[in-house]
Amino acid sequence: MKRPGSAIVMTLYLLFLMVPVYWLVNMSLKTNAEITRTFTLWPQDLTFQNYVTILTDPSWYMGYVNSLTYVAMNTVISITVALPAAYAFSRYRFLGDKHLFFWLLTNRMAPPAVFALPFFQLYSSVGLFDTHIAVALAHCLFNVPLAVWILEGFMRGVPREIDETAYIDGYSFPRFFVRIFMPLIASGVGVAAFFCFMFSWVELLLSRTLTSVNAKPIAATMTRTVSASGLDWGVLAAAGVLTLIPGGLVIWFVRNYIAKGFALGRV
């Protein structure tokens, strides 16, 4: 860093971000007795029992499996349907394209609270309640528009001449799309997938409403435990720490594109 002022600002800001996380990790490594009776800045009586509890009890760790299952399904579905649509928006003018594009965006603006009850009734009536696919489809509500937006932004950056040359060379559309175009926007696909992962992973209201036992996400498992056992802070903190890990892993892969992705590919 060149300027010392900047270093101070960044250090303070990152400290602000990290201190609550530190406290969570700190608590997850303590016994409940230590948490409630004494006040310590680091675990005096270091224990991994909280983690053992979670990783050996299926009603806990299945929550992670469920969450990751529907998140993965959602990411695949969103990207698959968004790719051709984004291509259409970035390359062609067609009847109602602008309105359609805005209408897609409005789904990103819809408060999940508005959709909670109708979703519950819709998925119950088609027999999908408490399945992973129900949550995956429900999350498409905000992830598909987002994926279309991000991909469209990246595709705009690819010159049209590439398409035209490929067609002249005798490529059919599907072959061109998979063999030539996809590699060109690979980073865009990666970023869009990252964002689908992220928003599906952090969402709770819809995933909780649409599941009861078989597909219950980890986040919902956590809220239930708080109310049931009341004071099992150590396990609650450990579960929280474990939810940080998937996010941390995917950030690592997209760290160089993350800012561009947040700008929906429009920088």
């Binding site: 406290w23 969570l24 802070w233 941390g248 950030i251």
Partner: peptide
């Protein structure tokens, strides 16, 4: 970049839990 993106990838209710624990008068820092 990585540290700043961290809070964005924490499930919403875990964000709530973190601050609930962090702010409590009896056990929070």
């Amino acid at each position: 970049l990585i540290l700043m993106a961290m809070p964005l990838l924490i499930p919403f209710n875990v964000v709530g839990t973190i601050w609930q624990i962090f702010g409590r008068v009896d056990i929070g820092l």
